[in-house]
């Protein structure tokens, strides 16, 4: 499908500038941290370490997906693209973006290691028996989760406008206040931890289980996005 290919290409085009900027910043930070380690310790053998790639890129993807929806949706509608085609194209773009970000991750990590900065993956820090394959699966599912979450939020904001934006902006703070109170009253403390432990597979230390949880959440988010987009009125 020529149209779907074009949707993916146009979506990528919107990310080019910010991705380049992000990479430049990450490289600069890496070199700076190396420089600082050297100048403070006077020895090139002192190691500097970085382990925030997954989280940094994940947040970048999340925010990127929140930002790009409106432009793309309006533009493609005026070009005669239907919601269904747009949705298909966007799913493909999520997959392509996750893979591209993984490649970028590899490239950036490579540059760090060349500069002598040690790179730790989140996967190997939290989970046990982690192979290269596990790292790839975990990182991909994390990125896909970040993209579908960002996409879903942008859709909600597009559909419901300012009230939704305010609700979403305020809700983390409110949840952080309410959940401890509720768990105290209802004695949910243990149950809550159990859920968190299960979701991130903190007890079993299995990265595959966590990946599976992320991926299933992403599928749920994508499905909700489809329900929202199916008849979404274009804001004109």
């Amino acid at each position: 499908m020529n149209k779907i290919k074009n949707i993916v290409l146009y979506s990528f085009a919107g990310w080019r500038k910010s991705t380049l900027l992000l990479s430049a910043i990450i490289i600069a930070i890496g070199l700076l941290s190396k420089g600082l380690a050297v100048s403070f310790n006077g020895s090139r053998n002192m190691h500097s370490e970085f382990s925030g790639f997954e989280i940094t890129l994940g947040i970048f993807i999340f925010v990127g997906f929140i930002a790009c929806f409106k432009n793309n949706f309006n533009h493609l509608n005026i070009m005669g693209v239907t919601r269904k085609t747009f949705f298909k194209g966007h799913l493909l773009f999520i997959a392509a973006a996750a893979v591209s970000m993984l490649v970028l991750y590899g490239v950036l990590a490579g540059i760090y290691m060349l500069a002598g900065v040690k790179v730790q993956t989140l996967t190997s820090q939290v989970y046990w028996n982690v192979s290269f394959f596990h790292i790839i699966i975990f990182t991909l599912s994390l990125f896909i989760l970040a993209s579908t979450a960002g996409w879903l939020i942008s859709l909600l904001c597009y559909k419901y406008g300012t009230p939704m934006i305010i609700t979403l902006a305020v809700s983390p703070a409110i949840l952080l206040m309410i959940i401890p109170i509720l768990s105290n009253i209802l004695h949910l403390g243990n149950a809550l931890w159990a859920v968190i432990n299960f979701y991130f597979a903190l007890n079993s230390h299995s990265s595959l289980l966590a990946s599976l949880n992320f991926a299933s959440t992403a599928v749920v988010f994508a499905f909700c996005s489809w329900l929202l987009i199916r008849k979404l009125p274009v804001k004109v």
Partner: peptide, 21 residues
């Protein structure tokens, strides 16, 4: 409605701006 074949045969010049900024 939601018909790619039909929509590809229609061109609409809107009064409001729908293009990426």
């Amino acid at each position: 409605w939601e018909n790619p074949n039909a929509q590809s045969k229609i061109c609409y010049m809107t009064e409001k701006n729908m293009f990426p900024k």
